[in-house]
Amino acid sequence: MKRAAGHILLIAATAWLLAQMFHVNVAPQPLNLVLWLALGALVHDLLLLPLYSGADALIRRLPAPVINHVRFPVAISAVLLLVWFPLILQRRPSGYVNALGREPPDYLGRWLAVTAGLFVLSGVVYAVRRLTASRAGAPRPSGR
């Protein structure tokens, strides 16, 4: 019952905060704000998560010793893209250059370069592991 009371309190507080939020100064188009509040969770749970789970399932088809050496750079690069896609894909307002007073750097090129670097790093780690494993004469531990 304590839990239920806590949740009722939370829902009431949220409803009140939303009422404040729908003030014309904050949200001239309340529906747009509602969509943004609700759609984030849906986009993540029903689109983003199945998408990266599917990508991971493809990676898992690779030979076992290679899996994580592909998984790591792909996942890190994808997170960089998720966070910085407005810059990387140049989703900037028309006044951007004017507002900052300078041309932005080539973020797409930077992202590609970082991604390439991550793959190279991962490849080097893989090569070193193989070398040390074959030197030791022991069978390579294939990821659990």
Partner: peptide, 25 residues
């Protein structure tokens, strides 16, 4: 932080109230 505003509401107000809802929940 990337000057990207694909929405039709006031960022400051929405981020403020959104933050309060986040903290409460």
């Amino acid at each position: 932080a990337q000057l990207y505003y694909p929405w039709h509401f006031n960022f400051v107000g929405a981020h403020y109230y959104g933050g309060l809802i986040f903290i409460a929940s």
